[in-house]
Design a protein around this nucleic acid. Structure first.
Lengths: 137, 137
DNA sequence: CTCTAAATGCGAACGATTCTCATTAACCTT
DNA sequence: AAGGTTAATGAGAATCGTTCGCATTTAGAG
């Protein structure tokens, strides 16, 4: 129930927020832009404004419900936080996105931050390449 | 001589391109936005348009002379390609940027790409944290 | 059920970047 | 070194993603 998730995150359970969270919890989406969310909900007959989508997604990000990615091309992409931290590998041809976790890399990053005198708070790692399907084209 | 670098990259040696490349080759800058380049050159008495700065930086990127980074906050930052590949560690408080290379991470990335069936072309890794100076504030 | 603060919708505003198109400058030719 | 061709530039309008301001609506406490 999205209502409970929202309350736990300290957010009022308003209609737009419920709809957006509910959409992101469908496992058919994974990585969506604000525009995607807006269009999809409009098509489903919901009536909300694009500004609200941006506001809500930003709140979700601050509440730790979603992560904002800066996939190239200017616009942001949002992903539901579930199943813990992971990084991404993207196909530069077709845009396909896969996920991975690597303990060795995670650990090295901590070490590097420490060596440079930083108190590490976060990181972002994207591997770019050509996926198996696109290699055959 | 910037003129030769430009010719080798397949670009006409025009005045704006020479000025911009020359600015980026000063080791005082490292990471600059289009706006930075524009303002700096205006202050040096050069007369060029912001549109040209964007065009030229994009061409430099395509020619492999510079790399475009998507440091958060919407705008792009450019860096001269020299001294080989490296990754970045950024302070989330003051914006300071340091560089590093880690062979272990580089190698793990190749391995992960291979496991996922990707032919890796590139990657981007940013570590975020609080730098030594900002920790003391 | 009522009230109050918080959330929303709408359209204007915004910052970064790109485009259009008339003008200018590079570089090949002579 | 001068001229012609073509690509590059300048200036400002246009576009894109995103945010803001403000009047209206709604969630949730009392």
């Amino acid at each position: 129930m999205e209502t409970k998730d929202l309350k736990q995150a300290g957010l009022k359970a308003t209609l737009p927020r419920i709809k957006i969270l509910s959409l992101m919890e469908e496992n058919t989406v994974r990585h969506v832009s604000a525009e995607d969310v807006y269009k999809t909900l409009l098509e489903s007959g919901e009536d909300l404004s694009l500004a609200t989508v941006y506001r809500v997604l930003t709140q979700f990000e601050q509440a730790g419900l979603v992560t904002r990615h800066h996939f190239e091309g200017g616009h942001s992409v949002f992903e539901l936080n579930e199943g813990g931290h992971h990084d991404h590998i993207l196909c530069v041809k077709c845009g396909r996105v896969d996920e991975f976790v690597d303990a060795v890399i995670e650990e090295r990053q901590q070490k590097i931050a420490a060596e440079k005198g930083y108190d590490m708070t976060d990181h972002s790692l994207y591997i770019f390449g050509i996926c198996q399907a696109c290699q055959k084209l």
